[in-house]
Amino acid sequence: MDVSVTVNGTHQSHDVEPRTLLVHYLREVCGLTGTNVGCDTSSCGACTVHLDGESVKSCTVFAAQVDGQSVTTIEGLADTAPGDGMHPMQRAFMECHGLQCGYCTPGMVMAAVSLLDEVPNPNEADVREGLEGNLCRCTGYHNIVKAVLSAAEAGA
């Protein structure tokens, strides 16, 4: 079936099997491998992308369901913010050392940006609860939370 999606601002149209999951569409059809597959069961959040600006787990969405909608992945995030090629959330993760192995990072960053859209001035508890759908198996949560709070303070 034909699926048309705006991915990172670019119109994409492909013939895909109805059972194609959005994460596989992004990685294998669009070639955008920044979105990771972790648990594959909507638990870990590594595959988090934005669908019409809101965080979703792309392993639990069919590409067919998002026909006509707009998807942003980690590759397109910087384009949504003015500056030098890095979104303020990405810079905050870098400055606060909000990553260890880095596998969960794309999903964490996408979830965090969506969280600040909905809760612009979060406290630490808001951030920890807001990121409950993203697992970091290095257990590096402390600096991740610091990064999100710092990005919020900077008005990301």
Binding site: G45, V56, K57, T60, A111, G133
Partner: peptide, 9 residues
């Protein structure tokens, strides 16, 4: 229910 990503869908 679930987490915020799940509740968005």
């Amino acid at each position: 229910v679930g987490d915020i990503q799940v509740r968005h869908r």
